[in-house]
Design a protein around this nucleic acid. Sequence first.
DNA 1: GTATTTTAAGATAAAAGAGTCTCAATAATA
DNA 2: TATTATTGAGACTCTTTTATCTTAAAATAC
Lengths: 153, 153
Amino acid sequence: MLLSKSCVYGLRASLYLAAREQGEFIPIRNMSDKLEISFHFLTKILQQLTAEGILESFKGPNGGVRLKKSGTEVQLIDIVLAIDGPQLLTECALGLPGCGVKNPCPLHDKWAETRDAIHEMLEKTTLTELVHKGKTENLRLTTDGGFDILFDN
Amino acid sequence: MLLSKSCVYGLRASLYLAAREQGEFIPIRNMSDKLEISFHFLTKILQQLTAEGILESFKGPNGGVRLKKSGTEVQLIDIVLAIDGPQLLTECALGLPGCGVKNPCPLHDKWAETRDAIHEMLEKTTLTELVHKGKTENLRLTTDGGFDILFDN
DNA sequence: GTATTTTAAGATAAAAGAGTCTCAATAATA
DNA sequence: TATTATTGAGACTCTTTTATCTTAAAATAC
């Protein structure tokens, strides 16, 4: 598995927030319902994103979370790093500690290339870009239903 | 984490076997010592590779395991599929079931490209190729020491 | 044929990841 | 001020992965 489940949920929730970007705080309960993710679990994940400065939160009635920056300024890599950490982009494919240009494993060079491709994809893709694609093509963020039904209320 | 620990151990052990390819069976205990992997854990992993027809085993004195085919005919993808299964190369990056060309998520296209790069790397790389690189450049398969010390007895 | 060396298989344990539950803190509103 | 809606934080549980331990089965050698 490339990304942990927490990370995947974090990405889906971030896309949801980017799609509703009007400055309002969105209650987590709302998101957990729409995205079919356990409320408490999602809450913990979003707390991490808040702690990392990707989201900001507000307590009480009319509270919730929202993106701290515009979705055009948030890359997927930001969320992956905040939740899964840098391992995916730094670790040796054979699990050897300290594997690098100085002291490589036999797979190092090839894996470094592939890893760079992953890195580049995550770095070049913004939330807004995916939201735009999702909206225009009515793609999905949940098992069933398209982008539109996420926002029908 | 791209590959599970079991898979990484399976790769390291397969490289070890490919490097010693002289038709003899290598005791797992020998490998677990050299590669610094728990003997019983490695045994179970190699059992999977044997069940998948990548290795063959022989019990009793002078027994052990060896590659069933030449290392030139074994690609990394064979070992990854045998141990981790096809998920890495089929799963949706956002974890949505049934994500594909017919019913994609917003990230599908980009992730499919990246995934193909991973697939291609694993598919084009043979054990022998990595062993050759490891031998000529004295690279490592363990935390410390180079390729040579693996085979000094 | 008995003892020894090895893989095979299954039970068990420990650690990590995923998910749930409870209560505290904060803010709005009536 | 009391009530309600919300996030924050921690304890707890369940599941999967990783690792260990024990016993059985097979093959060799004496």
